[in-house]
Nucleic acid binder design. Structure first.
Lengths: 196, 196
DNA sequence: CCTACCGATCGGTAGG
DNA sequence: CCTACCGATCGGTAGG
């Protein structure tokens, strides 16, 4: 099957996936229908199936592309020779920037993954668990090195990750501060909260 | 209609509502069917409608009972004569305890309110907005009094509220620290992050 | 509280 | 990419 590309190198399927992200974020995976999606793409519902296999496929493409991006960045940051607290700050900033710039996808990946089917579901949950353990390990190192307060590392991870998802509210708010200011405020509070 | 009460003063409807909370949390509002609910209550689907008007009614009972509890507590704390940062800490602790003890309801109220219908939807969104503004005002006071770092107050609110929803992960995790330890860790990080 | 059932909507397929 | 359509499932009602 030849993929028709525009000058921006975007296939028809890419358009469908990104419209799906917008819709899934707005209504939730279950409440968003393929007819809604077809309308937002500008075709009949049946035509979507020339580009995708199923509704669930859309969800798992979204979830795993986001997960892979975060895992790759974590690989990169882990291997740097810098203090643990600086690693945490870098990861935090990456999450914030991703949430600001790729709001729909990141949000869907974070909130709608429950609706994945096995084997994708267990796979995704595993990746998630591992990701969090690696973050916790960095924090543990920071605690050992007296850079970070002696707190429960998994609890700290859960606070960091969920606090970031609060950017959702920022996205929707009327009087927004700039993305840069948002980032600095979040880092101030969260890194400040961890640092000794 | 006479309400049949058990010795625990629990009506049949109360049972339905609390089973609904469990189900809506687990599957999401849209994915949870009235047949699922009927099964978990132990009756046929049609029988549920002798106690409730609609599926949506269940959702808005959950959302507003939670919202009212938080608003009432906020009233109480606002009127106390203590420093702003202590008010924030008290509110934070209340949220944590609520999330720990009434997990399902609080979670559903926090994540599934999108599926409310107007006028309940706008009503709920309004209450939410006002609640957050009142929290932001307390933080502003704390900043003015040099108890709290000079941060963007709405951003701080969004971090606090979302960080708390991270308790969801704690609930589901295998090796849990105690609820009390969780609370102390969260307060340490978050109040620590705000304090000058 | 149950049996029986309804209209609507869903994800998806056949065939062109 | 469309028309036509399917089986399944949904929330909810009638009537007892």
């Amino acid at each position: 099957m030849a993929r028709i590309k525009t000058e921006k190198n975007t296939t028809r399927k890419d358009v469908i996936v990104s419209k799906a992200a917008i819709l899934f974020r707005e209504k939730g995976f279950k409440a968003a229908s393929m007819r809604d999606l077809a309308e937002s793409v500008g075709v009949e519902a049946a035509s979507l199936y020339n580009h995708i296999k199923s509704k669930t496929e859309l969800l798992h493409e979204l979830c795993f592309s986001v997960a892979n991006r975060f895992l790759q960045k974590l690989d990169e940051i882990e291997s740097e020779q810098i203090p643990a607290i600086q690693k945490i700050e870098k990861i935090l900033r990456f999450h914030i920037v991703e949430m600001v710039n790729n709001y729909e996808e990141v949000y869907v990946s974070d909130r709608e993954w429950k609706h994945l089917n096995d084997p994708y579901l267990s796979n995704f949950q595993n990746q998630r668990r591992i990701y969090r353990k690696r973050l916790a390990a960095i924090i543990e190192t920071g605690i050992k090195n007296k850079e970070i307060k002696p707190i429960d590392a998994p609890t700290a991870v859960l606070i960091l990750l969920h606090a970031i998802s609060g950017i959702e509210s920022w996205h929707r708010s009327k009087q927004k501060i700039t993305a840069a200011a948002l980032e600095e405020n979040m880092v101030t509070i969260l890194v400040g909260g961890l640092t000794i």
